[in-house]
Structures are given as structure tokens and as C-alpha cells.
Computed example of a mutant assay.
Amino acid sequence: MAIKLTESAAREIKTIIEQQELDAETICLRVGVKGGGCSGFSYLLDLTEQSRENDEQFKEGGITVVCDPKSYLYLNGTTIDFKDEVMGRGFVFNNPNATSSCGCGSSFSA
């Protein structure tokens, strides 16, 4: 399995890369988790030029996605989407490993 990006998520990430005038050839999307949030873990997204030797690495929609091994245990099989709706705008995580998630969708428990 892998970490997947929907077309709308990949498009939004490319837009952010352009707006921040970053080099699309060298930039990666770092995906991870950290302890905290209302359900136990919070999702992390970051644009970086740094990938680490032991990172899991995937190419999705023209975006290089990297994830550290510990976070990957929780994120394997996750699909990241981007929603732009009346009630809110942002990235949405569809994580099959989450046993529950908070109402805002930015944290989960496993």
C-alpha cells in the first residue's frame, strides 16, 4: 500500500508550491503524525527539500510524498483529499488505520 493523493489534493499542493515560488523539481510533501490533538494523534503536512534515508517515498499526481517509518505505520493506505466547500477549505485524511477521528478531521486515534 502507500499514501495516496487525490487529483484535487495534488492540484492544491502544486498551487501552493507555485505561490511560494518553490522548485517543483526538488520539493517533497512530507506527511506524518505527532502525538496530540483531540483524538491522540495529529496529521502533519509540510513542504520540504529534505528527504531522509529511511523515509518511505511515493510519487502521486506529480508530487513526491515522503513519510518517516514511524508515521507510516499509522498512515499506510491513507488517501489525502482537498475540499473547498462552503463549510470549510482544507486537506482531508481518509485513514483506514484510524479507529476514531475528531469532528474537525485533523486528529485521530489508532
Rank of each mutant, 00 (worst) to 15 (best):
G37V: 03
C102Q: 01
E18Y: 07
R30M: 09
E85Y: 00
T79R: 06
K14S: 15
L44P: 00
T15K: 12
S101Y: 05
F41H: 12
K4C: 04
A2C: 02
F41N: 14
G36V: 05
E25V: 07
V86L: 07
G40E: 03
K34F: 06
S101H: 07
G37F: 02
G37S: 12
E7Y: 02
A10M: 10
S106Q: 09
Q57F: 01
S100I: 04
G61K: 06
I80Q: 13
G103H: 01
K14C: 13
D46G: 11
E49R: 15
E7A: 14
C28N: 15
T48V: 08
I80S: 09
S101M: 13
S39A: 15
F82N: 13
I27R: 05
P69E: 09
Q19K: 13
V66H: 11
T64W: 00
F58Y: 11
E56N: 15
M87P: 00
C28V: 13
L45Q: 14
I3T: 11
M87A: 15
E12Q: 13
E53V: 12
N95P: 07
N94R: 04
F41E: 08
S39L: 12
Y72D: 01
T15D: 15
Y74M: 13
S51T: 10
D55S: 07
V86H: 03
G105S: 03
T64Q: 11
Q20V: 03
V92S: 04
S39D: 10
E56Q: 15
S39Y: 08
E18P: 04
F58V: 14
N94C: 02
F91E: 03
N97H: 01
E18N: 11
L45C: 12
S39I: 11
S42L: 13
L29M: 07
S42T: 04
T78R: 07
V31F: 05
V31C: 12
F91Q: 07
S100V: 03
R89H: 01
V92L: 05
E85Q: 13
F82C: 08
E53A: 10
E56K: 15
R89M: 08
V33T: 12
N94I: 10
C28D: 03
D68T: 11
N95R: 06
